[in-house]
Design a protein around this nucleic acid. Sequence first.
DNA 1: CTGTTAGCGCTTTCAA
DNA 2: TTGAAAGCGCTAACAG
Lengths: 364, 364
Amino acid sequence: MSESTGSSQQLWSAPTIRDVAAMASTSLKTVSRVVNDEPGVSPELEQRVRQAIARLDYQPNLTASNLRRVGGRTRSVGLLLSNVENPLDNGIQLALEAAALERGLVVISSSIGENAKRERQLVDIFTARRVDGLVMMPAGPDQSYLTDALRQRMSMVFVDRPPAGFDADAVLVDNRAGTARGVAHLIAHGHRRVGYLGALQSIWTAKERVDGYLDALDTALLAGDESLIRLDLSSSDDSYDAVIRMMSAEGPPTALFTAQNMITIGAIRALRDLGLHRTVALVCFDDMMLFDLLEPAITVLAQDPWAIGTLAAATLFDRLDGSNAPPATHVIPVTLIERGSGELPGPFRPSVDQVAAHRSDRLQ
Amino acid sequence: MSESTGSSQQLWSAPTIRDVAAMASTSLKTVSRVVNDEPGVSPELEQRVRQAIARLDYQPNLTASNLRRVGGRTRSVGLLLSNVENPLDNGIQLALEAAALERGLVVISSSIGENAKRERQLVDIFTARRVDGLVMMPAGPDQSYLTDALRQRMSMVFVDRPPAGFDADAVLVDNRAGTARGVAHLIAHGHRRVGYLGALQSIWTAKERVDGYLDALDTALLAGDESLIRLDLSSSDDSYDAVIRMMSAEGPPTALFTAQNMITIGAIRALRDLGLHRTVALVCFDDMMLFDLLEPAITVLAQDPWAIGTLAAATLFDRLDGSNAPPATHVIPVTLIERGSGELPGPFRPSVDQVAAHRSDRLQ
DNA sequence: CTGTTAGCGCTTTCAA
DNA sequence: TTGAAAGCGCTAACAG
């Protein structure tokens, strides 16, 4: 341990376990025992060691200890999200951090965006740091670059989107059934022309949701109409434009389903500007703060980020504890929250049957 | 490198640099050179080594390499936020992650909440992991547990709140002046009784903001009124109750200033329920998505999380690069965004002078 | 109870 | 251009 000459920090080095041992006039191993609360150190010696630790302001170097420790675990887990500014991602991060802290793990996180290359780059970085486990929301179309060999050293759990070309645990949401229910809700309220505004089709959830929309049309024996479907919207501005155009065209929809929160915001703006927000019904995938304070308040299919994050953490920890069960996929339900925008009536008065059918569906 | 027997992952170990050297029939050091792009390896040998790396799916162990490397940097930075679900925290995290990635650093993050004990616990955890730098939003009232010795090894930058009892770089926001400007805005619009709803006084920003409120009253030669001030609100429900009570009491305010986003949400709900949202003016600290879509739209003092995070990152990197300048505090301005709720007129018609004064103030 | 020796995976130093 | 040896800070295995 050398003193700083006062210039840059590199010149100063942290006290090591040797410095402590020297100051306490004992051996390296004894200090190690004290630091790790291992038994077999006399109270007097322990006292001396603790004093030396305090005096030197010694902090054990966890990365060095992990190197030799059995199993070589770093007690860290990686988290690869799409975008920390998204409420779903936040909730998952918060839940994982809470679960990890309880277990003495730290979370290393980074945002991928929707970029396959960056996904691989970040997986490499995390692998090089030897995280014990990885929770990820994959961006790329294919995860076959992940190998079984890698899985041996790093447990992996996918959230929100399943892996492709690689078999692993996943915690998903019932995008398809949820969307179908939301669209059925609009149909039950008398709508026959329901517009659909979807996100980038490269995203798995986006594809599932369109399928759910088509399912609902099928179930109601309604024909799909190309002019009512706009996909690959990547911002609220995209969505704004799409809604303006769709509502201004021939045979506009009487209701809209927006498949993601940024798209929803653009749609709300557009409906306002057209003066149609109290006329055209709206159901959205993803809840957001303040949706309940808009007029009309927004009817949504709400996901449960905390549940997703908590289940992902539990699944990961099972693997870390040595579970060898075959990979499983967990699906978390979404909740339809009726607030007004989705209950604006359509031109076809709902029959008692339809409403009843819808009600019983909801109870299920 | 031993094969797995198929049970648990601990039995399998990752290929090491030795395995690669053996397979390429060369020495350890040569492989190291190839991995680190050091010069002095013949093309043929390099080729052999790269093949072995690919065949073994070798990934260098970064933590092991950092152990011996000069300076001993782990190329990681810690981020301690208050709450990842807060938009300000998100923005800072996103900006820091982006800056860190560009520099080849990873970000280890965790949320403190408003708990001083947890703050220290997390600082210890990050110290033990030898992060090169730390960006933190302190929760506790005192950071004197941080030492100069520690600073030598771990650069520190505080965001949103300054450290107490320890001198370090900080990136703050002009909470006091910003709040004063927001309150002056209400006064200029004819209000004399402005209610104030504030967060936990244990939080530095909360204290600054009350002071700003009092400053504005002083400047306008208005007397403060205890019944118009509610502090230590910790949730939107708290805020809701406080507003209901304040508006139902004798001599209610004609305008409100809410000092934080959750408090704002409670206040908006309360005003709605009282049917006063088009009557009582409202200016808020912190912007949120959808504030512009409420009726009336919400006038806010907006912070710039990206600017805060980017500046914090730049400041931290300066230190990592060896800067020894005395610690500096940077203050980022807030922006008043007029949207309607803050421009609802009060009982005292503004004089031309007042409006003019206010306008020129805004230009500054 | 205490200490010694070896070695984790890698970089450094220095010699060939 | 290449490699052997030493050692980063710590724990494991095995002595005393």
